[in-house]
Design a binder for these strands. Structure first.
Lengths: 339, 339
DNA sequence: GAAACGAATGAAATCGTTTTCATGTTTATA
DNA sequence: TATAAACATGAAAACGATTTCATTCGTTTC
């Protein structure tokens, strides 16, 4: 492998001058610049990134923390983040915490060992006080997930509003017995949606019924299970709010398989506006999350923090959520367009 | 940030000894070892990975090339690859080529600049002769996608067989007018499936009808479009082979929306055995691909190549495909179990 | 009791860049 | 025309680790 020294030798110039050419610094004569470029071409020279990283104290790599990538919401987030990072000349390392606090802390060492320039947390498995000490090693940006205690930039969506509009929509259809599904107790995203859910209920003078709450629903299979659990209740709900389209699809699938009709017997609202919402029959009413914009903003903010080196500032960037009404909640009437 | 020098100063020892402790080298007295570990703890010292990479000529990072991660097949591949890499102490950089040869070549420079120790290609956008020169900079392992010209380790599935069993299944149901769907002309995966498709037809003395071929179907929306195109044909097919469950789901969804019945009016077979195959009604007959095993093997082979430094050996590791019969091809009869 | 060996440690070179500082050469300015 | 300013270049230090080679000391071995 050719090094800068080889280029220097071949051209008869110093390493300094070669470096100047590489980095487009001024004060290199046009003649020498040509010479250097030719030599680099001839030797197939390309700068070694480890050496650059060491010298520049910067790797041009970001880490993105997610629980698991096969959740389509996170796939979409990763896709958008990778594209945004690439536009800024950054590479993206994927860290799947698999909902494990230990794995999360372990991946955090990427920041401490300077293997990455910054960490974007799209999910959080530890208390913030466990994570906070890592801030001394580099920037952390929260994206999607959030924590009020965290004194770092946060790009988020108004999940309280999301839970609210979805639930209000069900209430407006005349439902009073509404079940609640979410994925995980730890996530503030889930907690916020629950607050919005309760807020909507309260406006209709209804109280939250714990027997209608299912907080361990992540996948399609969980949706199927939840449906069976709901139907086993003495006072069955007539509608259900879910934290993901996958769970909603699972519920619908199981309901149809059991001979129920959607939304007549059970109205279902999903979350995320994934592709499957248009696939199932009936199609799924859901809440659209502007994932691309969120990811793009998170990367932009991250780059800025890397440059300014001020990591411990709590800035909140919030994007709007939007209810998409489809057939799983409103029967055969005409649906609202998707905007 | 504390460096090894700081630890040396605090303990009154040399950098050499500290390094020995870090790397578990012999010839360090237990007394000094304790001393060093305490000092490292006290200073919060952790080795700088750029410095290590430079000195050791090794980054402990792998790059995984995929077209886009939101394709569930690739999500699954990334998930499994990341887990396998982590088990070996490697990080994973995601490279989405977005079907662009230029982007692919650009990402290839990660190998040349030594930012990664190896590249796993799960999709190929260039001719092998474009890629081959990068072999001098580090190992390339093919995983899922393949190329007969490529003199590198290849972990693959028998796609000819996959196309064959899926098609044969349709033929066995009595179909003679079978349409063919795939994603992309460039992929050898798609080409192989087509060979298997034709082979099955040939066994039944049928010939391939180009009017039944749709080679630009990737997403759900493409499936919907393809269905409409098929129905516009003068001599409509009664069955269709697709290269992905998403496309199959799109076809089924559109068919149902247009008032057709599956499989009575159209039998549909998908590929990948994604979660949606169990969601749609009818459920989708498909071909299961052992993605986890494939990813695991690819990482294992990669690690071995990194160690042995012999990159240009063509070794082929092949995993079996399996037909999963569901309702989209066999009506209401009892289905074969999933094994 | 000298030679040989193994254990424990450190000085300095090395990995491949970038940057600081110094120096020499032009060109512009008063 | 002296002099400041701009341009062009290079030597050497720095980034933070690991490794090679010496060196010292204690223990066997014959």
């Amino acid at each position: 492998m050719a090094t800068i020294e080889d280029v220097a030798k071949l051209t008869g110039l110093s390493r300094t001058t070669i470096s100047r050419v590489i980095n487009n610094h001024p004060y290199v004569s046009e003649e020498k610049r040509k010479l250097v470029l030719e030599a680099m071409e001839k030797l197939g020279y390309v700068p070694n990134s480890s050496a650059r990283s060491l010298r520049n104290q910067k790797t041009s790599i970001l880490a993105l923390f997610i629980p698991r990538i096969t959740n389509p919401f996170f796939s979409e987030l990763v896709e958008a983040t990778e594209i945004a990072a690439a536009e800024h000349g950054y590479q993206l390392i994927i860290c799947q915490t698999r909902y494990s606090p230990e794995k999360e802390l372990n991946y955090m060492n990427l920041l401490k060992t300077k293997q990455v320039d910054g960490v974007i947390l799209a999910s959080i498995q530890n208390e913030w006080k466990q994570l906070k000490p890592f801030l001394q090693y580099g920037p952390i940006v929260l994206c999607n997930e959030f924590d009020d205690c965290a004194n770092v930039p946060t790009v988020r969506l108004d999940q309280v509003y999301g839970g609210y509009i979805a639930t209000k929509h069900l209430l407006e259809q005349g439902h009073t017995k509404i079940a609640y599904c979410s994925g995980g107790y730890r996530s503030n995203v889930a907690k916020s949606r629950e607050i919005g859910f309760k807020k909507a209920l309260a406006e209709y003078k209804l109280t939250f019924d714990e027997r209608y709450a299912f907080r361990d629903a992540f996948h399609i299979a969980d949706g199927k299970r939840v449906f069976r659990q709901m139907m086993a209740l003495s006072n069955r709900p007539t509608a259900v709010f879910t934290g993901s389209d996958e769970v909603a699809a699972g519920i619908i699938s199981e309901a149809l398989a059991c001979g129920y009709r959607i939304p007549e017997h059970l109205a279902v609202v999903g979350f995320d506006n994934q592709a499957i919402t248009e696939l199932t029959n009936p199609t799924i009413t859901t809440v659209h999350q502007p994932v691309k914009q969120m990811a793009q903003k998170a990367v932009d903010v991250m780059i800025e923090k890397i440059q300014t080196k001020k990591y411990d500032v709590q800035e909140i960037y919030e994007f709007p959520l939007q209810l998409i009404v489809r057939a799983s909640t409103v029967g055969s009437e005409l649906h609202q367009s998707e905007a």
